[in-house]
Design a protein around this nucleic acid. Structure first.
Length: 1018
RNA sequence: GCGGAUGUGGUGAAAUUGGUAGACACGCCAGACUUAGGAUCUGGUGCCGAGAGGUGUGCGGGUUCGAGUCCCUCCAUCCGCACCA
């Protein structure tokens, strides 16, 4: 009986669904395993074969863990808020909810065909109100928290208010933007508005005017990780800097813990490094420079400029200061003489987009302010400049320029002809700055004679002693902008009472996204929610009411921004533990049982976005006592992208030439009159057919166009000429034809098979080429060229899983995706190899000897030794390989096992039953079917027990020693493993082949590694 | 420029701690069978060479009895960051 994958797969899909085979509950006492995939954004394009790669790997792993006896949480859901649905809505007027639902249905249909063991009862959608109720709740919790540096964790804001009421903020060690000090009396006298303004400087999510990435084309702000090379990640639109009042998340508070937490994680070094880089810790000092009065050298005017430097040891090399153009002090310090020029420079800088600023790196610009700063140690005055090479958002937005030790300062000084002081002993700085830290410092008063390491310490000491600054650690990580001027996102649970933001208590959540007429910003530039007419908060009835009712007494306007895409995805893994809970974001019991994710699979593109934000929220929820773990994802593997294999046809444009024929000797000369030949070509343009050249021929053509023209093209000439030559040939003038410019044209991969083009299909697909001439291979086929590119519709190289499931079955697809290569590696999709995997499953089926009645004809005797050896070798390798996520070699192991058992003509029931269990994580449908046919009914192989490896079956008596001479393997000698090294040496050297390689010499040395190898050194 | 990763047949790849390089597949070649199927089976297939043999894991060095694996230099490709003071 043949392997009918279609019937089998349908049958078991239905069985699993109706029996809820993969439903999972919290079973106290049973060890848990949390296996999670990064949930997808359900796009309109559906899945291609690249998407399920990670899901298949995780499904294999989850099934394997179940067989090992773990209680496995393996859920799936949708990250369903987001830009594409909204843009589609703008174009079509359809509600994003509708398209989102349709896309999810399509995704589900595709996923179901692949036989995943997800517990769909636990599905979450970030865009459903039941879910985002709790996203809003987390926002509230962040709003109600501040970061206490003393306890090094987030605490309730009420504790902070209590301190303010008792003793003011002087003794508070918090992560804050608050600079002023106030007493308890001050605090108690402040107005409610003033109090809230101060609290905003402490809250972990806060409203503030901040420099944000503004994308005019998308009409919204973007977080740093959503901006790539100065343009938006989505759509590639220009991004500029804009000062806007926005919600931010105080992720900076967690910078150090996000950094140190990485050490305990089992992630790849590259992802960890990306996060370290993003957090960007640097140690140094902040130093305050007094601004000179201008009237008298060395006399301060009261203003101070704080700079951050990693090289306080170079402070005697300072020859000027530079502020970012956006620095708040620029106007205050600029002298009247330079006011106009500074204003102009600032204006020009503000117009520059992020991208311009980046691409302008070599173009040095700056403007002198006329103000002078007083060097804290020498008392000398140095100029203060503004320049856009100093970033407003890093450090203090101001630097002390040390041209001799910093290349950018050196470039700037050289460009404007400013002083360069050399403070490095015997270092030449005429061609550039000296940036190594091994120089001895000179001309630096108390730092003379020291190298960087000691000098930095001593300089910080002196700075602190003088009270002009202190040792400081700076982070590149900036607080994350949290509001978006979008419709399709979580609404903030926030209303404004006389300008003061107030959160809405959890019992009144969710605040549901309102209906709007259109999804665009309003005419006066408000976000799309500004179009809503029912978007005000009634504080008496605690519900959303019509805007017209706003009275600023009890009914207030609601926040118009929505949350960014990463809000919902920052905590979804917690919701899976208790997805239907209406009372809490998840019950304590369930969180305590499932805890954090044991193994997370997804793409590395989320390194500095999702993976950082969810770590941040996890640490926060831990601090506030809601969860018992500090890191969300303990182990992670990042699947590589599956690339498309595009196919091309080569179109070559033929060109006609006049050729003079000498009537006397018949010799030919090409007429090179360009004009004449162009006329000729335009005249016959429509008669000249398109020419497509088979790829190997094309390569020959590339190499040597003339030879190609002469030798190969002649064969197709007559067809190309189509009678043209006869029409225009005159006595003594002939027309020659040559191939000219060539162009690759994408061809749909469904029209090729092993690079062979379906020519008729191609002509049907592209009717404009119906009359084209195809230059073929000798066997009459047209071979396409190919290239590896990203899968995309426009490249006609998209392979959907559905097609392959239809053609080969889900089990084959699953095994093939695993077989393709190492999971983390990017690899081109190539359908060629799928036959091999399909054959493997057929061979496996045949091994079971299923007769016409569908009964497996197997022997029940004791298995043969060789059968057991094959089985246990496989068990061992599968376990080892899976431990290191080597899914591709696991599939190889199955192939080897099936090949060996076939060879052995094994029909042993015991052996085959265990093999079915082993195969089931990879090919669950066929495994279920075989399991049933072995008589295990009713039941499912997913509840079976993993076969246990028994070393006993692998023990060998003999080993075929490879014998090397000077490291080169020459022959093998089969010897008992019980021999001593000495005996092995003797046996090996007395083998008949030995003499040939010994050449009469006596070996200098013989290395014997028992059970491994023998090496003879001559 | 900085950081990370990767370079092995015609192709995807394997070789876990240094120990038989190329497992397992695809493709290709030769053959068998047949109810002509993306069927099955047999043999071959790194390169050079008729063969003996030589040679071979990006290049060049080194350590070692022995290196794809460890160390150094360089080259190429991919990814991330990039005026971060």
């Amino acid at each position: 009986m043949d392997y009918n994958f279609k019937a089998i797969e349908e049958k078991w899909r239905a069985f699993w669904a109706s029996n809820q085979t993969y439903r999972v509950t919290e079973e106290q006492g049973k060890k848990k395993f949390y296996m999670l995939d990064m949930f997808p954004y359900p796009s309109g394009a559906g899945l291609h074969v690249g998407h399920p790669l990670g899901y298949i790997a995780s499904d294999v792993y989850a099934r394997y863990k179940r067989l090992q006896g773990y209680n496995v949480l393996h859920p799936m859901g949708y990250d369903s808020f987001g830009l594409p649905a909204e843009q589609y809505a703008i174009q079509t007027g359809q509600h994003p909810e509708k398209t989102t639902k349709e896309n999810i249905a399509r995704y589900r249909e595709q996923l179901d065909k692949i036989g995943f063991s997800f517990d769909w009862e636990r599905e979450v959608r970030t865009s459903s109100p039941e879910y985002y109720k709790w996203t809003q709740w987390i926002f509230n919790e962040l709003f109600d928290s501040w970061y206490n540096n003393t306890t090094d964790k987030a605490e309730s804001i009420s504790s902070l208010i209590a301190i303010f009421e008792q003793e003011g903020n002087g003794g508070v060690n918090a992560v804050t933007d608050q600079s002023g000090i106030f007493t308890a009396a001050d605090w108690n006298a402040y107005s409610e508005l003033k109090k809230e303004e101060i609290l905003q400087n402490y809250r972990l999510t806060y409203l503030a005017d901040s420099w944000v990435n503004w994308c005019p084309a998308l009409g919204t702000v973007l977080a740093n990780d959503e901006v790539i090379n100065g343009v938006s990640e989505r759509g590639g639109h220009p991004v500029e800097q804009k000062l806007m009042r926005q919600w931010s998340m105080r992720i900076k508070a967690y910078a150090e813990r996000l950094l140190t937490g990485l050490e305990g994680l089992d992630w790849t070094d590259s992802i960890k490094d990306m996060q370290r880089n993003w957090i960007g810790k640097s140690k140094g000092a902040s130093v305050r420079f007094a601004v000179g009065s201008g009237s008298e050298p060395g006399k301060p005017n009261g203003a101070e400029i704080e700079v951050f430097t990693t090289r306080p040891d170079t402070i005697f090399g300072v020859s000027f200061l530079v502020l970012a153009p956006e620095h708040p002090l620029t106007d205050e310090i600029t002298t009247p003489e330079f006011a106009a020029a500074v204003a102009e420079y600032k204006r020009a800088a503000s117009l520059k987009s992020e991208r311009d600023r980046q691409s302008d790196v070599k173009n040095i610009t700056g403007q002198k302010t006329g103000a002078k700063a007083i060097h804290p140690f020498t008392g000398e005055e140095v100029d203060i400049w503004i320049a856009d090479y100093v970033l407003a958002t890093y450090g203090t937005g101001a630097v002390m320029a040390v041209p001799c030790g910093d290349q950018r300062d050196w470039d700037f000084a050289t460009h404007f002809n400013l002083e360069i002081r050399n403070i490095f002993l015997n270092k030449d700085i005429s061609e550039g700055a000296y940036t190594e830290k091994d120089a001895v410092i000179t001309n630096s008063d108390f730092l003379n004679g020291l190298e960087a390491k000691e000098a930095i310490e001593k300089a910080i000491e002196a700075i602190e002693q003088k009270g002009i600054g202190k040792g400081k650690t700076n982070y590149r990580l900036r607080d994350a902008v949290f509001s978006r001027q979008r419709y399709w996102g979580e609404p903030f649970p926030v209303y404004y009472k006389n300008g003061i933001p107030k959160t809405i208590a959890v019992e009144h959540l969710p605040v549901v996204l309102p209906e709007v007429e259109k999804y665009l910003p309003t005419e006066d530039g408000q976000p799309p929610l500004g179009n809503a007419t029912v978007w005000a908060w009634d504080t008496i009835n605690n519900k959303v009411v019509e805007n017209s009712k706003i009275d600023h007494q009890a009914i207030f306007p609601l926040e118009l921004n929505t949350m960014p895409g990463w809000a919902g995805s920052s905590w979804y893994f917690i919701r899976y533990t208790d997805p239907k809970n209406e009372q809490e974001f998840a019950s304590k019991a369930n969180i305590d049982y499932w805890k954090n994710v044991d193994l997370y699979i997804g793409g590395s593109e989320h390194a500095t976005g999702h993976l950082l934000y969810s770590r941040f929220w996890t640490k926060f929820l831990f601090d506030r006592g809601y969860i018992p773990f500090e890191e969300p994802f303990q182990r992670m593997i990042n699947q590589g992208m599956i690339l498309g294999r595009s196919s091309f046809v080569r179109r070559i444009t033929p060109t006609l030439f006049y050729v003079d024929v000498n009537p006397h000797d018949g010799s030919e000369t090409m007429i090179t009159d360009l004009q004449a030949n162009m006329t000729l070509n335009s005249e016959f343009k429509n008669s000249l057919p398109q020419v497509f050249v088979s790829y190997p021929y094309y390569q020959a053509y590339e190499k040597d166009p003339h030879a190609f023209n002469d030798e190969l093209f002649n064969s197709g000439k007559e067809r190309i000429i189509n009678g043209i030559l006869d029409k225009i040939a005159r006595p003594n003038v002939r027309v020659a034809i040559e191939l000219g410019d060539s162009m690759p044209i994408h061809v749909d991969i469904s029209l090729t098979d092993n690079d062979k083009l379906d020519i008729e299909g191609f002509k049907k697909w592209r009717p404009e080429y119906t009359d084209a001439v195809f230059i073929l291979e000798k066997d009459g086929t047209y071979i396409c060229g190919h290239e590896v590119e990203k899968m995309s519709k426009s490249k006609f190289n998209v392979q959907t899983p559905d097609e392959l499931v239809e053609k080969f079955g889900a089990d084959t697809l699953r095994c093939y995706e695993m077989f393709l290569g190492p999971i983390e590696q990017a690899k081109p999709w190539d359908t060629k190899g799928i036959n091999g995997v399909s054959n493997f499953l057929r061979k496996l089926w045949r091994l079971f000897n299923i007769d016409e009645n569908g009964v497996a004809q197997l022997s029940t005797e004791e298995p043969a030794k060789e059968n057991l050896k094959t089985l246990h070798k496989t068990i061992k390798r599968l376990g080892d390989d899976l431990e290191r996520y080597s899914f591709n070699t696991c599939v190889s192991n199955f192939m080897i096992c099936v090949n060996e058992l076939t060879e052995q003509k094994c029909t042993n029931r015991h052996i085959l039953e265990q093999l079915v269990i082993l195969v089931s994580p990879y090919a669950p449908h066929i495994a279920e079917e075989l399991w049933e046919r072995l008589g295990n009914t009713p039941g499912t192989v997913s509840k079976a027990q993993l076969p246990v490896f028994n070393e006993h079956y692998l023990v060998e008596d003999n080993f075929a020693y490879p014998v090397s001479f000077n490291g080169k393997m020459r022959y093998k000698v089969e010897l008992p493993l019980t021999l001593t090294p000495k005996e092995v040496e003797e046996a090996v050297l007395s083998a008949p082949e030995a003499g040939k390689y010994l050449e009469g010499k006596i070996p200098k040395k013989v290395i014997v590694v028992p059970g491994k190898i023998v090496n003879v050194v001559l």
